[in-house]
Amino acid sequence: MSRATIRTLAAFATLAVVVAALPAFVNDFRAQQFAYVGVYLVALTGLNILTGYTGQISLGHGAFMAIGGYTTSILMIDHGVKDVATIPFALVVAGVAGVLFGLPAARLSGLYLALATFGIALATPALIKKFEGFTGGGAGVNLFGTPELTASLTPVRFLGLELNFNNWLYYLCWTVALVGYVVAWLILRGRTGRAFRAVRDSETAAVSSGISLTRTKVLAFGISAAYAGAAGSLFAITTTFVNPDTFPVTLSIFLLVGVVVSGLGSLKGLVAGAIFIQFMPLWSQHVSKSPGAPAVVYGTVLILLILVLPGGASGLIARLQHLTRR
């Protein structure tokens, strides 16, 4: 193993230990907030594969999360499938949707793609409301208190630990997040990852070295949407309720913001991006609660972050590593 690999594994092991130990130090309410960080981490990992590594801007990943979330809810309520067992279904359904959307979308480049995906994100809530019989319409689907939702009524015993609902959610989301993280790392360090980066850096050069643009982009779309589907499924389980407004346009926008704050084309800063998505709105409200003020704080912080840290959290980490190594 190369030294870089060992360093990566050590960093990952540290992250896993911190994640495993965290619930012992925070209260129940915070544990649920950190569960959301795990959910966003799954989505951001997927989005970074598409936007950071393959260079395709998506403003529509909230829509793929909605597909995942609704797959989970419909399977649980209409077909009595246990919540954890629905996650693979959500992943596959969203992944297939990603491939189907990717096939035509691979023709679009740059900002056209950004706007087309934005359109998908915009249309999704309206479509969910329209197909009421299937999705429950505007009233939504409630999952809380159903036997399919693990630990919602009685604590669950796991590896000799008794976990209440929020701690269970925390461990569920972070298990998926860390597995997803490792899988992404494995995908990206090999041949597929090289093809993604080649397409991002120069489509012409990629084609001349025998890479199929359509295949690569569609693959990236599929993988990325599958991640978003799993994230949407976890989101539904964690909020215990879905309706069309669970997955608004702003979710798609904040995911893209999160991925840029993390740093494009690197997995190092993703946790920071997930924390930003979950906690930045709450922190802005701490500053001032008067109407409009939190948005002013959020917007200002975001603009300053991009100006000061153009490489995002990953860029900052890389710079720090560079300093300590000398």
Binding site: T51, V260, P291, A293, V296, V297, Y298
Partner: peptide, 21 residues
């Protein structure tokens, strides 16, 4: 490009909040 796009999203939030304020 994407960095500029994110800046304009920041501006969107900022101006919207400012108007509310």
């Amino acid at each position: 490009q994407i960095r500029v796009v994110i800046i304009t999203i920041g501006l969107l939030l900022l101006l919207n909040g400012l108007a509310f304020w």
